[in-house]
């Protein structure tokens, strides 16, 4: 009897230790990256680093503004493309489509959610870049290589399609059928029911899906590295190239050790990514809680 209880205790303590360790990973990563970016933070203030546009590591100039803007442009573009398309798709699948179509389409979408980003990158290079270069950009600008914010946005958007569609369909399926009937029986059309009742009810879930999609797009590395052009100048339009933070980090890995402070600057960009993701998560959670309380 004693042995059983002892076993319970010992194993419990071990599990607790593992849990504490893995939970503190957030903190460990933060501290680790902070320590590594300390050298550059001692030379320049965070404000200087974030607002300066001049990126010349050889001369010791480290301005992150172009990369931050690049990240925002590309992420924003992808969300702008993906959210409306995915919402309409999810609504169609859950409210309008015949059951047989839904049964065929949804597993396909789930399957594509697993395709690695590098494949989306390959597709972007071979499919999206030429289209942007030959068919879209010439209508707006004189010359474009195709490697632009637009291309990055499209590739990222397609990458987050499966994510948003599958979560939103799941969210819509939890809404009781009777709520739909209540609205329909008042003489509302199907679309009115969707617009005024279902979307309202599903809003917290849809919001959470979009937050996850933004995090994914924001931190995506290899796909944007392949299609955005990587020019360290803040983009002015969707036909300019962009150089998002993760791409900067990934691209300069080999050479960073030989230049003073370069390595520290790159680690600072990783640190910045982490902090932005953390802040974004906290804010969205707070908003979500507010909405849920209001709708309760």
């Amino acid at each position: 009897m004693k042995i059983r209880l002892l076993k319970d205790k010992v194993i419990g303590t071990g599990m607790l230790a593992l849990s504490v360790l893995s939970v503190s990973l957030v903190l460990l990563i933060g501290i680790g990256l902070y320590l590594r970016s300390l050298p550059i933070l001692q030379q320049y203030s965070v404000w200087e680093l974030v607002t300066s546009s001049s990126w010349r590591p050889m001369k010791g100039e480290f301005g992150f503004f172009p990369f931050i803007m690049g990240t925002l442009w590309v992420t924003g573009m992808s969300i702008l493309i993906a959210v409306p398309l995915c919402l309409f798709t999810a609504i169609y699948l859950s409210e309008y489509a015949p059951a047989s179509f839904k049964r065929f389409f949804l597993p396909l979408v789930n399957m594509l959610a697993g395709i690695p980003p590098v494949i989306y990158g390959v597709w972007g290079v071979f499919f999206i870049i030429p289209i942007v270069q030959r068919y879209i950009a010439p209508h707006f600008v004189e010359f474009s290589t195709g490697y632009t914010v637009l291309a990055g946005g499209i590739v990222l958007a397609v990458m987050i399609f499966p994510l948003i569609v599958s979560i939103v369909v799941e969210v819509l399926s939890t809404i009781p059928k009777e709520l739909r009937e209540a609205s329909l029986s008042l003489g509302a059309t199907k679309w009115e029911t969707v617009k005024k009742v279902i979307l309202r009810k599903a809003f917290p879930g849809i919001f959470a899906a979009i937050v996850l999609a933004i995090s994914r797009a924001f931190g995506e590395t290899i796909a944007v590295l392949m299609v955005c052009g990587n020019v360290p100048i803040a983009p002015q339009s969707i036909f300019d190239p962009a150089y998002p933070l993760p791409a900067l980090l990934a691209n300069n890995f080999g050479e960073m050790m030989s230049v003073p402070l370069y390595d520290s600057a790159l680690m600072f960009s990783a640190f910045a990514l982490l902090i932005i993701i953390l802040i974004f998560n906290i804010i969205s959670r707070a908003i979500l809680q507010k909405i849920e309380i209001r709708n309760a």
């Binding site: 939970v23 957030v26 931190g219 590395t221 993760p246 980090l249 982490l274 959670r285």
Partner: peptide, 21 residues
Amino acid sequence: LAFDVLFGVPSIVYGAFAFSL
């Protein structure tokens, strides 16, 4: 909550952290 946050941390950040380690 912490695991939810960790889930959203980009893989490049894990890479950079593991590299520092």
